[in-house]
Design a protein around this nucleic acid. Sequence first.
RNA 1: GGCGCUGUAGGCAAAUCGGUAAAGCCGUCGAUCUUUCAAGUCGAUGUUUGCGGGUUCAACUCCCGUCGGCGCUGCCA
Length: 483
Amino acid sequence: MSVRVRIAPSPTGSLHIGTARTALFNWLFARHQGGQFILRIEDTDQSRSRPEFTQNILEGLQWLGLNWDEGPFFQSKRLDLYRQAIQTLLDQGLAYRAYDTPEELEAMREAQKAKNLAPRYDNRHRNLTPEQQAAFEAEGRPAVVRFKIEDDRVITWNDLVRGRMTWQASDLGGDMVIARAATATDIGQPLYNLAVVVDDQDMAITHVIRGEDHIANTAKQILLYEALGAAVPEFAHTPLILNTAGQKLSKRDGVTSISDFQQMGFTAPALANYMTLLGWSPPDAEELFTLADAAEKFSFDRVNKAGAKFDWDKLDWLNSQYLHQLSANNLTDSLIPYWREAKYSFDPETDRPWLEQLAALVGPSLTRLPEAVGLSRFFFTPTVEFSDAAKTQVQQAGVAEILQAILAALKAGESLTQADAVKALVTQVTKAQGVKKGLVMRSLRAALMGDMQGPDLVDSWLILHQRGFDQTRFEYALTLCSE
RNA sequence: GGCGCUGUAGGCAAAUCGGUAAAGCCGUCGAUCUUUCAAGUCGAUGUUUGCGGGUUCAACUCCCGUCGGCGCUGCCA
């Protein structure tokens, strides 16, 4: 039987990195096995689900390159299916209606807590007499549907990541609610655990791959599979992604949704690469890989059991590796939106070659895309602010003469289209002025960039020259020399 | 409180059936290259596998205990 896996996000927020990592492992496993990867939106909780979150989730998965083979399916459109299943359980006596009010349940838990007992439903409405039921109905009390959990059951499964797992049914908290409250003749909104099982069965899911925070649900769900007469799939519980403090990464930690990472200037391949490393290690030592590469090597016996702490340094390093590899062409495409947003003046069409040179110049210094804004700022403007260090440099003895000589050459029509031409000019001026080359270079840097550090000087000059900005900079620098 | 999972250097981690440890990567530090910064290259740095017992010729790997971390414990998913 071919492998069928799914990612089942709930649209109650934007695509969380934990969900995305789960999606990623599902995807990797599916691709490795030549199976199907299915997308299902779990929006049974109508009050918390939002279409814009669904949109965000879909876009995030696509951006990361996690293409799905079927779906998206929406649970909200499959409610009848769940209700049928619930009805069947009811008919078979495997589930029953419970009329407890929230207040009664609360009181029950308080009492248990006071006695230092684990809070659990005490199954008090499991064996109601027809008279008792009628009485509750006459009172107008709504009923939830509870699925019977026999305390003496022991649930075990062979987890693909964790090995043999055992769970005592008595630790599951009593008979579980599978449908929200509704009038006693109706079936209320189906709940998560029930819907998941019905869907996974209906969609013929063979492997349920999800975060370890679902381990307890797995025990409950296995009971439901059995009650519904369905084949129990394989399970794989992946480690959680932890924050620096070692807790499950949550919204409170700030940046956690994929769109946030995208906005911060991480590239999709780098993020995906990093997420793969969170809990999985490649059989070889190669840590830079594409999703396709990882899919070839992926297996659950190399998935770690302990939670993985999120490491910004390593993500940054990985992202920089990807950025450095990018061709000038691709990098330019990625950078144009940022330059635009910074309101730099350029024409993406006619300035294209110039922009690509700039991208190539700035690229090796980038860790995240937005850094290009600051790094390339002064290439877009005729003049530039001088730092104190640059000012001091320009005011050193002999610098004015050097700049004069260069400016004269430029005005004489010196054409700087090649690095060689720039170097030749520098050498020529150095000799003519009888100074050290270092002095010339540092002065040029100060005059052209208004700062003592930055990208390669020769290339920077060539780029500025094309816009005629070198002359304006030299002229301005000369006014500072005598200040 | 209960139940479950988990614990290898600052972080991610490797180490087929127990075989005598910390591969690799990030970080940090240094050197080198260079007109500067970054990148690159080269090198250095960190350990007795949470702790204590036990089994064994041999334990990170098995057993017991203990401590810590996390997760779950909802008419959320």
